[in-house]
């Protein structure tokens, strides 16, 4: 026990004294989370648009105002003809052009039917899709409110509710994702690296000749990173919560427990170079598969322990398997 304690102490010295290790442990998760949170988004905001309003009546003005005050769009310029559209797109700043037909407002009231054309720059198809659907939503919403008697012709609108992530916020997606990534990096990778480092420095020779048992060495290597991972998990969830407003609906303790379970299997970092068709089946022995599921379920759905039983058993089984393999392999090298 004393030996193990002193081994763990030594391991902490290694980690705390190496700026690079510290950077990987704490710098990467935080920056990654902040970058993902602010750069990679499924929502849109401040998208530049151009408007060609042939009608210039009250209705189109109000629709334009509504679009611009939504926060999603910024008016780049007003067009006077359709000629400039392609040129504007080529400049790259404007992502969408809205064209209202002549007498838009009058037609709408008289005929119950008026056209608005949305032209989007589809070089980024994902963005184009988002932009047009946002615009459609706003226009329809406005018309419905202004003219409640109007039947939207040829249109059945499905009412979509996104469960567990009502607003389709991307932060909900990447907080659990980053967590899995980071835990993977720290637990599996860093533990393996620290063992490799012993070998490179030649200190493994001395450890092997010493009366230290393989199990003491492996546990001594895993435990410090386990503790750091818990701290890390805490930081990630906190940033997710306080900066991006991702709620943890489930139990934080359960979340950490499942995380620990995952971390307990250092030394499983194997690159998957290609993903053939049987990968789906093979994925069932991949611990990250279970971890991701559990993280999402706890953070977003607020699932309890018994909902996660299947994953829990699978992950425990894999954990024991990999840890035993590591110890067995280590023993063989002595």
């Amino acid at each position: 026990m004393k030996q193990l304690k002193s081994f763990i102490k030594k391991e902490f010295f290694h980690i705390l004294r190496d700026p690079r290790t510290m950077l990987i442990l704490f710098g990467i998760p935080i920056t990654q989370l902040l970058i993902f949170g602010t750069v990679i988004k499924n929502e849109i905001s401040d998208v530049h648009i151009a408007i060609y309003d042939q009608s210039k009546d009250e209705t189109t003005m109000q629709i334009t105002n509504k679009l611009l005050s939504s926060g999603y769009f910024i008016l780049n310029q007003n067009l006077e003809s359709t000629d400039g559209i392609e040129a504007i797109f080529k400049k790259g700043k404007v992502k969408q052009v809205i064209v209202f037909e002549n007498d838009f407002g009058q037609k709408l009231i008289r005929e119950g039917n008026a056209s608005v054309q949305l032209i989007a720059d589809a070089t980024d198809p994902n963005l184009a899709r988002l932009v047009t659907s946002y615009t459609t939503g706003i226009v329809n919403d406005y018309i419905k409110k202004m003219h409640p008697n109007l039947q939207m012709p040829l249109k059945t609108e499905p009412e979509v509710r996104m469960y567990f992530n009502e607003e389709m916020k991307s932060a909900y997606q990447f907080v659990p994702g980053t967590m899995a990534l980071i835990l993977m990096l720290i637990s599996a990778l860093m533990t393996s690296i620290s063992i490799t480092r012993e070998k490179e420095m030649g200190t493994m020779e001395i450890l092997l000749v010493s009366p230290l048992k393989p199990v003491q060495i492996i546990i001594g290597k895993v435990l410090p990173y386990l503790i750091l991972s818990i701290i890390n998990g805490f930081i990630i969830v906190s940033i997710g919560h306080f900066v991006f407003g991702v709620p943890v609906t489930g139990s934080f303790v359960l979340l950490m427990l499942e995380t620990i379970l995952f971390i307990l299997m250092g030394g499983i970092f194997t690159p998957v170079e290609s993903m053939p068709s049987w990968a789906q089946i093979a994925n069932h022995i991949n611990p990250i598969y279970y971890l991701m599921r559990m993280l999402r379920m706890i953070i977003l759905k607020g699932s309890g322990f018994f909902d996660l039983l299947e994953e829990f058993i699978a992950l425990s089984g894999l954990g024991i398997l990999f840890l035993s393999l590591a110890i067995w392999k280590y023993r063989k090298t002595t």
Binding site: T203, I206, V209
Partner: peptide, 11 residues
């Protein structure tokens, strides 16, 4: 045992 290479923890 003292291996050929310096084998202590440098840090």
């Amino acid at each position: 045992y003292m291996p050929g290479r310096f084998s202590l923890y440098q840090d």
